[in-house]
Nucleic acid binder design. Structure first.
Lengths: 161, 161
DNA sequence: ATAATTAAGTCAATATGGCTGACCTAAATA
DNA sequence: TATTTAGGTCAGCCATATTGACTTAATTAT
């Protein structure tokens, strides 16, 4: 009776097992950001600053509009965080060919911080996937990808050419 | 030269590939919580309420202290959220055998909300893992588990007996 | 050439979810 | 009896997000 699902679907997780996955997503996300958060705190920065620095570092000369579409926050929310980063010279702003637009890039100082923060997360991921095989790692990436909504998939493709 | 790593380690992700994983973690987490968030918003609740409801549902008669150790927030932060949930009869409080402690459980109303919220996430996970094989799914769970810190591992084990 | 749209910025108010510090009560334990 | 533990509370603060209204300057469409 309980094994009926295995006759239909090749592999089935019951609610209890799926709930464990929910919990692991919660715990792992929290722990994944806690390292960078400690460094950001010393600079009186938060999660929001990391996200801005990350995506500006990812796509040099990104515009405000593009950044907003990635972060999915309002321009008022972005404004405060971005202005702080510009004022403290982590990010430099220039005018685009279309003079209505602005292009954002990391300064050397910004690149150093970006690197410091990302290195923690890169090392954590490498340390973990070291213990797994190619198939598991590709599976992990694909499952994460499938967990995202269509709009996120589109943005993910955009920022990765 | 670039393939040198493959001679040493069985599988290696370069920085660019690891950064994709960082992005997928960000996008997938955001999208994973967006469904429940819409329902919570109608009740003037937020992420914090969901977490409390989830873990009270998970472990019936959980104490304040236990809940705090899972959530890793201060009792002042928990207080506001929990009091709202009690006032609006999603959670019921009773006194423990040790009369200093309190035991929290979901009311029927609370169970209904918990179920509504969790069902969204359970369905999302099932919909995704349906497309993968047993090995990939087990790999996914294990990678998430390894992404957590020791303390989270301990708590995860505790709440799952 | 003018009108409409777009990119960006700003002001103000509001909500949520965290935090610290100080202090309190009641119950259990040493 | 003294100390520790579980829980609560008051006050103030900060970060991150929201909505709405309005502005400026530049580009594009009519």
């Amino acid at each position: 009776m309980a094994d009926l699902n295995n006759l239909i679907s090749p592999f089935f997780l019951n609610d209890k097992e799926v709930r464990k996955v929910i919990e692991l997503i919660f715990f792992s996300y929290r722990d994944f950001t806690s390292g960078p958060d400690k460094i950001l705190e010393k600079l009186s920065f938060g999660r929001a600053h990391h996200r801005v620095i990350y995506f500006v570092g990812k796509k040099n000369n990104i515009t405000i509009k593009e950044l907003l579409s990635v972060l999915q926050i309002t321009k008022q929310s972005l404004s405060r965080v971005l202005n702080q980063l510009v004022k403290e010279k982590f990010i430099i702003v220039s005018t685009g060919v279309d003079k209505r637009t602005k292009k954002l890039s990391l300064t050397e100082k910004g690149k150093n911080l970006e690197s410091e923060l990302s290195t923690i997360q890169i090392k954590k991921i490498r340390g973990v996937i070291n213990k797994f095989n190619e198939d598991n790692i590709n599976g992990f990436k694909k499952i994460l990808y499938e967990m995202t909504e269509d709009n996120s998939k589109k943005i993910f493709q955009q920022i990765n050419d």
